[in-house]
Each structure stands twice: as structure tokens, then as C-alpha cells.
Amino acid sequence: MKTVRRNLICASIAAACLGGAAQAEDRGGKAEIFARLPQSVGNIAFTPDNQLIFSHHPFYEPDLRVARLTSPTTFEPFPNAEWNAPRKGTDQYLDNVLGLRSDESGVVWIIDMGFRTRITPKLVGWNTRANKLERIYYMPEPVTVAGSQPQDIVIDQKHRKFYIADENIGPGGDGSHAAIIVIDMDTGAARRVLDGDRSTVPENIPITVDGNDLTVPGKDGKQSVIKVGCDGITMDVNSEWVYFAPLSGRSLYRIKAADLSNEKLGSEELSKRVERYSDKPNNGGLSIDYAGNIYLTAVESKSIGIIGADRKYRTYLNDPDMVWPDGITASPDGYMYVSASQVSAAAMFHNGKAENKTPYLIYRFKPEAAGYISR
């Protein structure tokens, strides 16, 4: 396992944050508040030099889509203000962002879902070492479909592919066409696979937080239970298995990366190669450590779960203020970080009365083994 140099600025941020938070023991099972911010945090990415990059959760339609943490309570636009400013005549901006992840070269890959200003969904790579645009990959129809909401990503350097989870609950979507999008790093060619597969679509299971089933207006105008398709996605450090799951569902699935990246496999054959890996609760984000332990953000119970080599789910840690734990990722500092986006506290789920409130929290905790930033 290679050692990654820590960024001194971010180290000082961590020290300052620890001074104002409950101290965690240097072992798993405990979490501490790392940052307290004025807007909801969606997903988190760490660069190899330990810069913390995060999305402001698009559920709240933030003006600043993506940011870089500058202190435990402050941030700045990432990569800059211009890229966070939608404008006519170009698509060289970030429109609607949840998922992002850094690779080992310091390129932060940002998924722009595109439906806020109706531009073509794209994957934007920003090189943090050179401070310039690395590349844009586009996801036009039929790679994306009506209701597409591509929002989590795995970077597979071994097979030269990106794997993106599309939960299919964007405008006009109901999760029934959830899928995985595969992008070839070299050619830019993109494919939509496992569309509507048993492993990607939501199960008919309500998301229940504090005794409240989350509902949204259905096509008939009546309230119906929200069902979310393929959401979390991660991959082991050997790039052998890709793990993924619908948020709404009790099953975690996996497929070999070699199969997922194989363009010769038809939809039926690919589906046959998907394996149900374990039980799970309704969960959002996924991450993994070098020992193969999988970490899940359990959105209903304000907790982080873990699935080990025995394939059995257990609660790893919880906190009463970890409302809707969302993005989860490893850092070069040996911790894992998780956002608490408070989505379930929004007004639309509480008869128009908002229960979400500042500050919005980023937690960190010690995993059972070190993790990998691009997973």
C-alpha cells in the first residue's frame, strides 16, 4: 500500500476542527464532527494531498454547486467561481452536482446531472495539481434517459473505465429505469447497462426516518412512498468486484469489473453475472477499505453500517445528529468521512414545515482498515 503525503493546510484544518469537537478514540465505532457548515453537504472527495472537495446537496438547489473546505466552518468555490455560474451559450459550468470522486493523480471527477438548466449530463475532470480542466465526458441520450440522476462514481484505472450509478429519480423518473453508466476513459464512449435490472431498481420498501415514511406526489397527484434506485457504488482495491445497490432495498449486489466493462456481453448475460452479495438496510453511499469491508450510510437510522468478509451487516457507529448520512469516502489521513445532508428533514417530507437546520455536519471516523480515495 503506497503512502500518500498529507497536505499541511488540511492537516491544520483537521487540528482546528478536533479542538472544537468531541474527541474520537483511534479505533472504529466512534465518530467525531469534523466540520460545521451553513449549507447541506452532499458527497465528499479527497485528493491525494488531502484537500476536501464536496458538493452542496442539489436537493436544496444551491448557488454554489461544488466547494473546497478551507476551515471547519468555511469553504470556497471549486474549481472556481466561473465553473459554478450557469450561463447561456456554453455548457462549461457545473449545473447540478451530487457525486464526485478524486483519482490518485489528483483529478477530481464531478458528475453534472444537467437537469437543472437542461444541459447534457457530463463527467467533468478537474486537475488539482495543474489547476485546469482535464477532460469532459458526455452522457447524452440514450446513455441517460428521462428521469436520469447519475450521482455516484467509481474510478477503475485497471480496466480504464468509470462506473456511474443512475438512480433514475430525476424529473420524470421513478427509479424503474435505474442503471449503471459505463464510460471508457480513453475513447469517451459511454454505455447504459443493467437498466431496469432487479439489481438496480428500487424495492417496494418505504424509507422511514423517525417513524415518518418519506413520500412525494405521485403521477396521480396523491402522495406515494419515494423509491430510489441504484445509488451507492464502490469497488474493491484490486478492481475485481464492483458493489452497488438501490437505496430502497434490502440487497447489496456485486459484479466482476471485467464483466461490467465487457462491451460484448448482452443485457441478459450481464444480468446473469450479477450476484446478490448480502443483506442491507435502505442506504445511500458506499465505500470500501483495503481489507474488503464495505461501509454503508444507513439513511433511516442515522448510522454507518459495515459488511465484512462474513457478508453480514452490522451497525458500525451512529449519532443522533447524523441526519441522512449521505456521501462517504476515505481520506489519505486514514479516516473515513461522511456527510449528514438532512434531506429527510426537508419541508416536503414534513407537511411543508422545514426541520433541516444549520449547521450541516461532516463527520469522520476510523475504519477497520485504511480506505482508497477513488472508491
Results as ranks from 00 to 15, higher is better:
residue 4 V to Q: 14
residue 4 V to F: 15
residue 5 R to Y: 15
residue 5 R to W: 14
residue 5 R to P: 15
residue 5 R to K: 15
residue 8 L to S: 12
residue 8 L to C: 04
residue 8 L to A: 09
residue 8 L to Y: 10
residue 9 I to C: 11
residue 9 I to N: 09
residue 10 C to T: 13
residue 11 A to Y: 01
residue 13 I to N: 10
residue 13 I to P: 03
residue 13 I to K: 02
residue 14 A to P: 07
residue 14 A to Q: 13
residue 15 A to P: 00
residue 15 A to W: 03
residue 16 A to N: 14
residue 18 L to F: 01
residue 18 L to K: 06
residue 19 G to W: 14
residue 19 G to Q: 15
residue 19 G to P: 03
residue 19 G to I: 12
residue 19 G to V: 14
residue 20 G to H: 10
residue 20 G to F: 02
residue 21 A to F: 01
residue 21 A to I: 00
residue 21 A to P: 04
residue 22 A to F: 06
residue 22 A to H: 10
residue 22 A to G: 15
residue 23 Q to H: 05
residue 23 Q to A: 05
residue 23 Q to R: 04
residue 24 A to N: 00
residue 24 A to W: 00
residue 25 E to Q: 15
residue 25 E to A: 11
residue 25 E to V: 09
residue 26 D to T: 03
residue 26 D to G: 00
residue 27 R to D: 15
residue 28 G to N: 02
residue 28 G to K: 05
residue 28 G to H: 03
residue 28 G to I: 00
residue 30 K to Q: 15
residue 30 K to V: 08
residue 30 K to W: 04
residue 30 K to T: 13
residue 31 A to F: 07
residue 32 E to W: 01
residue 32 E to I: 00
residue 33 I to W: 09
residue 33 I to Q: 09
residue 34 F to R: 13
residue 35 A to W: 09
residue 35 A to M: 13
residue 36 R to H: 11
residue 36 R to L: 09
residue 37 L to Y: 00
residue 37 L to E: 00
residue 38 P to H: 04
residue 39 Q to W: 10
residue 39 Q to G: 09
residue 39 Q to K: 12
residue 40 S to Q: 10
residue 40 S to E: 08
residue 41 V to C: 00
residue 41 V to G: 00
residue 42 G to S: 07
residue 42 G to A: 05
residue 42 G to M: 02
residue 43 N to D: 15
residue 43 N to I: 01
residue 43 N to G: 10
residue 43 N to S: 14
residue 43 N to E: 11
residue 45 A to C: 06
residue 46 F to V: 10
residue 46 F to N: 04
residue 46 F to Y: 08
residue 47 T to H: 09
residue 48 P to I: 06
residue 48 P to N: 12
residue 48 P to F: 13
residue 48 P to M: 12
residue 50 N to I: 06
residue 51 Q to W: 08
residue 53 I to C: 06
residue 54 F to N: 05
residue 54 F to P: 11
residue 55 S to H: 04
residue 55 S to K: 01
residue 55 S to T: 09
residue 55 S to P: 08
residue 56 H to L: 04
residue 56 H to M: 06
residue 56 H to W: 14
residue 56 H to Q: 10
residue 59 F to C: 04
residue 60 Y to E: 14
residue 61 E to I: 08
residue 62 P to C: 02
residue 64 L to K: 02
residue 64 L to F: 06
residue 64 L to R: 03
residue 65 R to L: 12
residue 66 V to E: 04
residue 66 V to Y: 01
residue 67 A to G: 02
residue 67 A to Y: 02
residue 68 R to C: 11
residue 69 L to N: 08
residue 70 T to D: 15
residue 70 T to Y: 13
residue 70 T to Q: 14
residue 71 S to P: 05
residue 75 F to S: 12
residue 75 F to W: 12
residue 75 F to A: 08
residue 76 E to C: 02
residue 77 P to S: 07
residue 78 F to A: 04
residue 78 F to M: 08
residue 79 P to R: 07
residue 79 P to Q: 07
residue 79 P to S: 03
residue 80 N to D: 11
residue 81 A to R: 01
residue 82 E to D: 13
residue 82 E to V: 01
residue 83 W to V: 03
residue 84 N to M: 04
residue 84 N to P: 07
residue 84 N to W: 06
residue 85 A to E: 15
residue 86 P to S: 09
residue 87 R to C: 13
residue 87 R to P: 13
residue 87 R to E: 12
residue 87 R to A: 13
residue 89 G to D: 02
residue 90 T to C: 12
residue 90 T to Q: 07
residue 91 D to T: 15
